[in-house]
Amino acid sequence: MQNLHRQLLIGLVAVAMGAFLALVAIPNWVSAPDKVPHIVLSPLFWPYTIAGLLVLSGVGLVLSGRYSDEIFNADETRIPGAMKRILIFAAIAIAYVRLIPLMGMVWASILAFGATVSLLRPGHPRLAIICAVLFPLILYVFFAHIAGVAVPQGKFVRLP
């Protein structure tokens, strides 16, 4: 029943996405010139076609899901605390992006490395700390001084 649910759910989400695209997103966020010689050349034609295909594949998934007994990877194991760790990682990712302009790429990376390591319960905490500091610095040297990328420096500490 669980597996049936998953296939059906994916199909329903696809149908909902297709409907949202056709009814809300395309009319509001795709602009087209007033006069187009043929409808197939309009900037709206392709997005509407894709919305139709999305609904079609969703319907196909719903129909096939009713008779499917396929076992999904995600259903095989339940791992304690997995969702909590993923949510924490999402928070780390958001903080990482926000911190880059403020602290600079290197310092934000050191913090993000450290935070991600702590999520993974390292067997070698000292090595992890050394890597957390050294790895972003080595990448900084490569990208800033060899590849010539303007790596963000942040507002507090500037690196040479």
Partner: peptide, 8 residues
């Protein structure tokens, strides 16, 4: 260790 590889 994966715990160091993947943050890298």
């Amino acid at each position: 260790p994966r715990s160091i590889l993947f943050p890298g």
